[in-house]
Every structure is written in structure tokens, then in C-alpha cells.
Amino acid sequence: MIRVGKHIVQDLMRNRFILAYTGLLLVLSVSMFSLDSDPGKATLSLLNLVLLVVPLVSIIFTTIYFFNSYEFIELLLSQPINRKVVFFSEVVALSAALGMAFMIGVGLPLLILNPGGATGYMILAGLLLTWVFVSLAFVAALSTRDKAKGIGLTLLFWFYFELIYDGFLLYIIYAFSDYPLEKVTLALTALNPVDLARILILLKLDISALMGYTGAFYQNFFGSSQGVLVVGVLLILWAVAPVLLAWRKFSRKDI
């Protein structure tokens, strides 16, 4: 596994995209802190980067990389190497490379320029979101043989979790506004990793007062260490479950 993973990481490093992505994140993070004198506000601006750009890049890059390394995978599979090893090396190498890019591009500036506050949660959420979207990308890439369709599917996943799902959630809240919905919405956010990450960070930014009664309820839940643990576990589940689904597809795939 390490042997195969090493070659995939080497291959990823030859690809300049990861370096460019790290650089872009670094420039954006540092410039946000230099534009705003209040590190709290800069952190809030960075939130959008973490919630929108990081998942988008993670899912699209992983899908494109997977399709482009099809020859490499075919070559590996005709060698005495376990299919499982090839697949999980790909997953681990991509998760590690994109996670490292996030840590250097966003984590490091945050730790230096705004230690404390929501920083720890932001890094945790960004890292977990990266892995969630890497694993969703494998599902998309293994659902079709066509590269364009695969990329289309990843964009659909991204739109679904960033926009469509929230619209659907708002509709439910609006339609059933006469009923107490706190627990229902809490359960429904568990079905969207982006929402989980967003709420986790927002509550640490002490702006939950803006969110009214629900905000207070959320604060109660997410504010406790137990709530943070639950969110962490849910996000890890969101990263692991799609990988297992993708492995089922890959193990039966005709190369």
C-alpha cells in the first residue's frame, strides 16, 4: 500500500495543480487578513472560501485526476497488485495531497494570524470537508465511463450540497413554520456535510444571536463538546461512506 501510494503521491506532485491550489489558498487567506484589521471578520470571510471553494476544487480535481490516471490504474492492475490496494492508495494519496494543500494554504495562516477563537474548528471543518468531497468525487468518477459526464455529476453534487439542499431545507422550514422545527432541522442538517461544517463554525464565531431561537437551540447543541463530537463523527461518516460505495463499484469494474 505504501509502495503504491508513494508512486501516486509522486505523480500528484508532478502535477503542478496541487501547488497552484496551495498558492491560491495562501494568497487568499493572507490577503483577507491584511484587508481587515479585525481578525474575527477576516475569519468570517475565510468561511466562504472554506465552504465553497475548498469543496469545489476537491471534488473536481479528484474526478479529473481519476479519469486522467486511468492508464496508470490499468497498468497497476495488470501487475501483481491487489485491486483494494490500488483503490485505497488513490483515495489516501488524494486526500493527503488536498488536505496538505488546505493546511498550508488556510490552516497555517489562520494559526499564525488568528490563533484561538474559531480557528481550530475552521481547520477541522475544512479538512473534513476536503475528505468528504474527495470521496464523493470517487463515487461520481466510478458512476460513469465518460469524463464529461463524470465532471457533470461532480458539479451536480456540489450544487446539491451548496445550494439545492439549502433551498429544500428553507422550503420545509417555511411550509411548516407553525410547528417547532428545531430538532427536525438539526436532523436534516446532518444530511448535508456543508451545513454541518457551516453551523459548527458560525456558532464558534459568536454570531448565533443573529439566528434567533433556533440559533440559541443550536448553540446549546453545537456549543457542547458532545455536539462537536457528534458533528465530527457525522462528517467522518460522510467521508467514509461514499468511499465504501465507490470501492463496491471499483471492485466490480471492468477495466
Binding site: D11, R14, N15, S69, E71, F72, E74, L75, S78
Partner: peptide
């Protein structure tokens, strides 16, 4: 294989 494919940038 019938069609020799290798990672392009290698």
C-alpha cells in the same frame, strides 16, 4: 496490452 497506454507525463 493491445493498446500500450502509459501515464503521459512519466
Amino acid at each position: 496490452p493491445q493498446f500500450a497506454t502509459f501515464p503521459n507525463h512519466l
